[in-house]
């Protein structure tokens, strides 16, 4: 356990170091108001989701003044909103690039839906769900139609998803000796008398 604790503390230290590294300033953009290259995080401000680089308390004061007089929007219009951390770069530059991922996505999405439908039908019909999903996934609507057209298979051991009801019956009492037997027994285990089974045996008794 000491090992685990030490490992945890060590990783927390790495986390702290990484955070410290993250917080250390990269090359800052120039001041929005005076163009000075030496901007600092403590002077910069957020405005309508935009990170505004500023270089000094004087520029900060100037910025507040413009904010009060409503003269900021023309200055900040060219700066993208900071946005959510992971989507900061999600704006127009993404419009380029191939559309192939989109069409692949549509095919996979439809495949998952029709494959799921085929597997659902297969479970209901008592036929293999895995291969039905594969057919539905690969052939989309055609695959679903193929699975729908397949005949159902008779199966006694059919699990109906989450709508399960216990099927165990009460034990079967021997009319002669009164001892309890499995509901599927056709012979009394105790006296050998022939019994009328209440359900089909799960296996062929040896």
């Amino acid at each position: 356990m000491t090992n685990r604790l030490t490992m945890l503390i060590s990783f927390l230290l790495i986390l702290g170091a990484a955070f410290a590294g993250q917080c250390a300033a990269a090359d800052p953009p120039p001041c929005l108001l005076c163009g000075n290259a030496h901007t600092a995080a403590e002077h910069s401000v957020l405005y309508k989701g935009r990170a505004i680089p500023l270089c000094s308390p004087a520029c900060q004061e100037h910025f507040r003044e413009l904010e009060r007089t409503g003269g900021l929007d023309p200055l900040t219009a060219g700066i993208e909103p900071r946005a959510a951390l992971f989507q900061a770069d999600s704006a127009p530059q993404r419009l380029g690039g191939s559309r192939l991922p989109f069409w692949i996505g549509c095919y996979v999405l439809l495949g998952v839906l029709t494959g799921g439908g085929a597997a659902f039908v297969a479970v209901r019909k008592g036929i293999p769900a895995g291969s039905s999903f594969a057919i539905g996934f690969a052939l989309n609507v055609i695959g679903l139609a193929i699975v729908l057209a397949k005949p159902a298979r008779e199966t006694e051991f059919h699990v109906t998803g989450l709508r399960k009801v216990p099927t165990t019956r009460a034990s079967l009492r021997c009319p002669d000796c009164g001892k309890a037997n499995h509901p599927s027994a056709n012979l009394c285990l105790h006296c050998g008398r022939a019994l009328e089974p209440l359900s089909r045996s799960e296996v062929n008794p040896t």
Binding site: L109, V112, G116, A119, P128, A129, F133, G161, L162
Partner: peptide, 24 residues
């Protein structure tokens, strides 16, 4: 496959279809 196909559980099949579908 693990929870739906192998166990013949349509609830789990639909749940995973939903998760994957929403993601896409």
């Amino acid at each position: 496959k693990r929870w739906g196909f192998d166990r013949k559980d349509s609830f789990q099949i639909w749940r995973y279809v939903s998760l994957i579908g929403f993601q896409w």
